[in-house]
């Protein structure tokens, strides 16, 4: 695993020759530090900026490839698609555009997988599908996943990214918060483990339901996490928000996140947490791996 690339000093060749390097499609500019990254370098580094460590938003397929053991992901309900239940103007078109933009059929991918050999149920939300907004299909897929996981006594690992409820489905989207939470609760009451990984951005109704209901809540560095949107808060309190408000680090400081784990270390961290909760004896304690910091 390439951990070193994450934090190396921001001195690559692109910072010097930034101007002529602006060729979209081949290079991406980092929204945080502005450095121009060749796409290949970005992808090799799990879509994390090699200069500043910024975690780019990624689609569910990439996410699955980083977390699940090779060829272990079995997708469930992959053909389920939303309909315009309320006759909301423009929703059909929005759905078509979202499918084109994301190349997915809905805003969450669900399935079973193994992580370093431990089986789990896995859901991954999609920032490219209407910003992971939760409508009835997203709610249904997640609910079914929890019901399956309860039946099979599987732990659930869930990656959240969401702008909130899908307003084109009106009150029915609000009901998804209750529906998903009900399934999470049953899964939990049966003694199963649920790990949420909050990624950028996790807000609104998703934060106020299954994102915050994990036994362990992990977050990606720098992710925006909150209930209300920053703009709404600024309008409400008529003040600028302090720097770093509603970031993963802010939530950690305030006690709402258990741990922040960079993308390159997530698979190992998730695998360890799954093993601890697997009910099987843990392998004998081994000395710290090379490269891991010494704990005196």
């Amino acid at each position: 695993m390439n951990l070193m690339g994450l934090f190396r000093s921001p001195q690559n060749e692109l910072e010097k020759g930034g101007k002529e390097a602006e060729d979209a499609g081949i290079r991406n500019s980092c929204p945080r530090c502005g450095v121009l990254l060749p796409l290949s370098e970005q992808q090799e580094n799990m879509n994390v900026c090699t200069a500043c460590g910024h975690h780019f938003r990624i689609n569910p397929r990439e996410r699955v490839s980083y977390i699940a053991d090779e060829d272990t992901f079995r997708e469930l309900d992959g053909d389920m698609m939303s309909r315009d239940l309320l006759g909301f103007p423009g929703y059909d078109q929005k759905l078509r555009n979202a499918k084109l933009a994301s190349r997915e059929k809905e805003g969450v991918a669900c399935g079973t997988a193994q992580v370093e050999g431990t089986p789990c149920a896995l859901f991954v939300m999609d920032p490219n599908f209407m910003m992971g907004s939760m409508g009835t299909v997203v709610g249904e897929k997640i609910t079914r996943l929890f019901e399956l996981a309860t039946e099979q006594s599987l732990p659930v690992v869930g990656f959240t990214v969401s702008g909130g409820a899908r307003m084109q489905e009106g009150i029915l989207s609000l009901m998804q918060m209750a529906k998903t939470s009900a399934a999470v609760k049953r899964h939990s009451d049966a003694g199963n483990f649920y790990l949420t990984v909050l990624t950028d951005p996790t807000t609104g109704g998703v934060t106020a339901s299954f994102a915050m209901e994990g036994d362990v809540i992990m977050a990606e560095p720098g992710a925006t996490i909150g209930f209300a949107g920053a703009r709404v808060i600024e309008q409400t309190i008529r003040k600028k928000l302090p720097q770093g408000f509603q970031t993963a680090e802010f939530l950690l400081e305030h006690g709402f996140v258990d741990l922040i784990v960079p993308r390159a270390e997530q698979k190992r961290a998730i695998a360890r947490l799954l093993r601890v909760h697997s009910g099987k004896p843990l392998p004998a304690a081994c000395p710290p791996e090379a490269g891991e910091e010494e704990r005196a």
Binding site: G226, F227, A228, I233, Q246, G255, F256
Partner: peptide, 13 residues
């Protein structure tokens, strides 16, 4: 639910 600074700090969601 109130959209305030303290509300977020104290975990509205």
């Amino acid at each position: 639910a109130y959209c305030g600074l303290g509300a977020e700090e104290r975990g509205q969601a």
